[in-house]
Amino acid sequence: MTPTEALQAWLALEHEAVWLYPVVGARVDSLVKTARTSFAAHRDTRDSLVGRLRSRGTSPAAAALGYDVGPLTNADQARAAAQSLEARISAALLTLAGVAEDDLRAYAVRALRTSALAEQTWGAAPRAFPGLP
């Protein structure tokens, strides 16, 4: 995998996050504030990634119309969907860290720390190696 491909894989997940968190906030009252914060963070990351890919002369991956994240009718389901997504982002970032160099690698390492903490925010237990299955 090239760094650009790894960035595109990460961007695809950020698109999913930007779709997911408004749905969570709309359906689960108790999670509105957390979902709003997560949405804003992922929207900013998505926009940053779009810029990075364009600066590489690459067309950024487009968002899907919708995503299959399972049922989202209560807080437990919403937390599970969020944890799953953040964990997939962590895995994508670990892939990027491994193929990138210099500033891009440092960016991936910082973002991995952020996504690992986001996993926790949504209720995941701490792990020795976030990003590894």
């Binding site: 491994g98 991995l112 690992a116 190696f129 976030p130 990003g131």
Partner: peptide, 10 residues
């Protein structure tokens, strides 16, 4: 790189 990055996040 991946192991150390994952450790840092952990």
């Amino acid at each position: 790189v991946r192991v150390l990055a994952a450790m840092s996040a952990g």
